[in-house]
């Protein structure tokens, strides 16, 4: 042991190359670090710049119409009359579109939330590791399907199913759009919901089990209360997806401007309306500007949804 030690002390000076000791760093290292820092800072700030630029552009395109003589903000918000191309009597009422967006979103959530949360609970609490992996991959695949393809399915498969099962005349309607939207939001709800359940500490599960809960009671009384923030976030992300989705609802809802009286009525949503009409509206015309204003309306809606979500989650946390 001792001979070993002396040997290593003897060889030490050869093993380590002689270097000048110093406290400072070479200049290239300092410049490199500063450059990297700058790059990261720019990418951070760019997000703000882009958002502001989009705001600016949309507002710039939309605002002039507010001063135009044949436009009233009251009509825009509360009238169901959407006749943007009428020669004699132009009317820009988006209320029916708003109702369309809201009803499609609500109905799709009524379908997607139970399925999504149920699947999240199943994946996180019931299935074995191998089944879990398979299911998660398949659900991610579901999220990867482009929305136009969902639109195809709505237009052909689900529309046919609805007409043959219910005997209603038109298959592209509120129900069809909601089913498509539900299918599109489920993957988000499942993956965020599953994360939320996974984040519940195991000690809560053991506490519940040691009190003699059944599996069902454990989920209902322990896991859901413990994970409610995350589950709420999952649902709201689903809502966000449903409100903003355009192409699939454009193809599946039937695209007629009216307030629906049942799930088999056709509707048109704010998003679909913009997508369908913006290409035909002459740039700078009132029609064009009203469509941009519709975009602002949509933005306000999603902003309110996000803000309430934020407040609700913070409120729960404070308690």
């Amino acid at each position: 042991m001792s001979s070993n030690l002396t040997e290593s002390t003897l060889t030490l000076p050869d093993a380590i190359p002689k270097r000048v000791k110093r406290v400072g760093r070479p200049r290239w290292a300092i410049i490199g670090e500063q450059a990297l820092e700058l790059l990261i800072r720019i990418s951070g700030i760019s997000a703000i710049v882009f958002v502001l630029a989009i705001f600016f552009f949309v507002f710039k395109e939309a605002l002039p119409v507010l001063y135009s003589h044949n436009f009233s903000i009251k009509e825009f918000l509360f009238s169901t009359q959407w006749y943007p191309t009428s020669v004699s009597n132009v009317r820009y009422g988006t209320f029916a579109l708003l109702v369309g967006s809201v009803t499609v979103t609500l109905l799709s959530m009524a379908i997607a939330v139970p399925f999504g949360l149920g699947a999240a609970i199943y994946i996180s609490e019931f299935c074995g590791p191998r089944q879990k992996e398979t299911l998660k991959i398949i659900i991610e695949l579901l999220a990867a399907i482009p929305s136009v393809v969902w639109g195809f399915i709505g237009l052909t498969v689900i529309s046919k199913l609805i007409t043959t099962i219910t005997g209603t005349a038109v298959g592209v309607n509120l129900l069809n759009g909601s089913i498509i939207l539900a299918l599109m939001s489920v993957p988000i709800i499942v993956s965020i919901g599953e994360d939320a359940l996974k984040a519940v500490p195991d000690s809560f599960r053991e506490a519940g089990m040691a009190m003699g809960t059944t599996r069902w009671q454990l989920i209902l009384r322990v896991l859901l209360p413990a994970a409610k923030n995350g589950l709420l976030a999952a649902v709201l992300l689903g809502v966000g997806r449903a409100v903003g989705e355009t192409m699939a609802v454009l193809m599946a809802t039937g695209h007629s401007v009216k307030i629906p009286h049942g799930v088999f009525d056709s509707v048109r949503t704010l998003t679909a309306n913009i997508a369908a009409e913006l290409g035909e509206a002459a740039a700078g015309s009132p029609h064009y500007r009203v469509l941009f204003l519709t975009g602002i309306l949509l933005f306000v809606i999603t902003f309110i949804v996000n803000l309430t979500a934020d407040f609700v989650i913070r409120g729960i946390k404070r308690k």
Binding site: P201, S203, F204, A207, M209, A210, M211, V222, A226
Partner: peptide
């Protein structure tokens, strides 16, 4: 069984 045999854990784990 678990109704009759209670358990207290290493880290206090009251439910949230």
């Amino acid at each position: 069984l678990r109704k009759n045999v209670g358990m207290v854990f290493q880290r206090p784990n009251p439910l949230p």
